[in-house]
């Protein structure tokens, strides 16, 4: 029988690793960003649970900051994607090589 803490941490690890895998392997920029959101979500879960175990406010306060930054990041990244799509007609990451020297 496992304790609740262990279950929550396991879920968080799964979320983080699936997020990382998504970010590494997907070719679409939007889906890669979804991977980042998944990773952030896993971290949030750990922070909440650890904040409850260690009885301090930093963990859960940090979660709210992470949420806030994630929202700002998603808004900016998605508007950049819209511009990229307008310019190149695709969001496949391999096609954006113009920055290469």
């Amino acid at each position: 029988m496992i304790a609740t803490g262990q279950l929550i941490f396991s879920v968080a690890i799964f979320l983080f690793c699936f997020g990382a895998l998504t970010f590494f392997t997907k070719r679409s920029a939007v889906v890669a960003l979804m991977g980042i959101e998944l990773m952030l979500n896993g971290v949030n879960l750990v922070l909440v649970q650890a904040g409850q175990i260690y009885k301090n406010a930093e963990g859960t306060s940090l979660v709210l900051f992470v949420t806030l930054v994630a929202a700002a990041e998603a808004a900016l990244a998605l508007s950049i994607f819209v511009i990229l799509y307008r310019k190149y007609g695709t969001l496949t990451l391999e096609n954006f090589r113009s920055l290469k020297g």
């Binding site: 304790a3 879920v11 799964f14 699936f18 997020g19 998504t22 991977g35 649970q49 409850q52 175990i53």
Partner: peptide, 29 residues
């Protein structure tokens, strides 16, 4: 109660929520 939520056994609800969280994450991948 708060201690019970961490050291105690997970409730059925927690198992279901955990399963769906991992399942949907797998689908994203």
């Amino acid at each position: 109660q708060a201690t019970d939520l961490i050291a105690g056994a997970p409730t059925v609800f927690m198992w279901v929520a955990s399963f769906f969280a991992i399942f949907f994450a797998l689908i994203v991948f």
